[in-house]
Amino acid sequence: MKFFFVLLLLISSFNALAVEVVIHNLSSLSSNAQNTVSIWVNQSVEKTQNTLGPLKQTTLPIYLKPQYFAFEPVPWATVKRNNPDGLELHIDRYASLNAFTKDWTLYHELSHLYLPLLPYSGFWLSEGFASYMQNVIMRDSGIITQPQFVQRLNAGFDRARMQTKTKTQPLNKLSADMWKQRAQQRVYWTGAAFFAQADLKLQKQGLSVAGIIKQYQVCCRPARSSAKTFIKELDKLSGSSVFTTLYAKYNTRTDFPDISKEQLNTL
């Protein structure tokens, strides 16, 4: 009887995903690890969809790359753009469910799937959205507290401020060359600041970035897009000029915006 209720709970949870999660290479793990990874992946997709809405795609392939020696649960991951889009996850095969759940990486990569593939010069938007939203998802689902949410964002912003002192190119130029320049901190977290400021402005209209992205999934998300087209669609959905105005400030900026902990605490 106990097994029946556990099975029923898992089926109900998986059905709530509204997307079929297909985990490749799961059989390379022990039976206990298979169960752990399956629960972690499906619960993470559910948490993400609770914040951002259902993914547009009906199938989500997850390609596992288990490691024997890893210093963190998910040392590396990436989006695999295809039809459908998927994720490649390099994981610690011995990590616990609790360790996986508290790791930010999967929430970050899942967030990428809500945006179209943008050109390299617009990667500050892609990475900024994922860096900001990973913390929103973890906060919304109770994995981190509101003070931890503020602390994590502020820490990321501090790293970006520091790197901005040496990486002084316009943001769109640096974005296109961030791997060679090793400028990920400035690119990722300046992009996150963009979406945090957008949320602050949208709050005045009773809206949110997550809510606009939910609508974007339903009506407008293509496989690829220019940054300007993406931004214009978000403004149409919000009935405002919030995104276009911020984009004009951020796209070629060479400094880091001024965002206080007090402002972040209102998000």
Rank of each mutant, 00 (worst) to 15 (best):
Q163V: 01
Y114F: 14
V74R: 03
R81L: 04
S96F: 12
P147W: 05
G122D: 07
H112E: 15
F149K: 01
Y114I: 12
S96Y: 09
W124M: 11
P119F: 06
Q134A: 01
S96M: 09
L153Q: 11
A160F: 07
L115W: 01
R139G: 00
L113E: 07
I91T: 03
D85M: 10
V74K: 07
K165G: 00
V74G: 08
N154T: 05
V74A: 06
Y120G: 08
S131D: 15
W76D: 01
N135A: 08
L115H: 09
Q148R: 13
Q134L: 10
W104P: 05
P73Q: 09
A95Y: 05
G122K: 05
L89D: 11
G142S: 02
N154G: 04
L153N: 00
R161L: 07
T105A: 11
Q146I: 00
S141Y: 03
Y94I: 03
L115A: 13
A99C: 04
T145L: 06
P84W: 09
L110Y: 11
N154A: 08
S111Q: 12
S141I: 02
N82C: 04
Q148D: 15
A99Y: 06
Q151I: 07
Q169L: 14
I137M: 08
F157I: 01
Y132N: 05
N172E: 05
F157Q: 13
L117D: 02
T105M: 06
S96K: 05
F123R: 00
Y120R: 09
V74H: 10
S121D: 14
L125N: 03
A77R: 02
E127W: 10
Y120N: 14
Q151T: 00
T105L: 00
E88N: 01
Q163L: 05
D85I: 00
P170T: 06
K173E: 15
H90L: 09
R152S: 07
T168G: 00
P119Y: 04
Q134G: 06
T164A: 13
Q148G: 04
G142L: 05
G128A: 14
L87C: 01
F157D: 02
S131M: 07
A99W: 12
A160D: 03
P73L: 10
E72C: 03
L87R: 02
H90M: 08
N82D: 10
E72V: 02
P75I: 11
S175H: 02
G86Q: 02
M133W: 09
A130E: 12
S111W: 13
L89W: 11
V79Y: 15
W76P: 12
L110M: 13
L174W: 04
F149H: 10
V74T: 06
T105N: 08
L113D: 03
S96I: 07
S175M: 05
L110S: 04
K80N: 08
G86Y: 04
T164R: 09
P119T: 15
Y114L: 15
A160W: 11
G86N: 00
A77T: 12
H90D: 03
K167S: 04
D158W: 10
K173L: 13
Y132Q: 04
T105E: 10
P170F: 12
L117R: 15
S131R: 04
A160R: 04
G142Y: 12
K80R: 15
N98L: 09
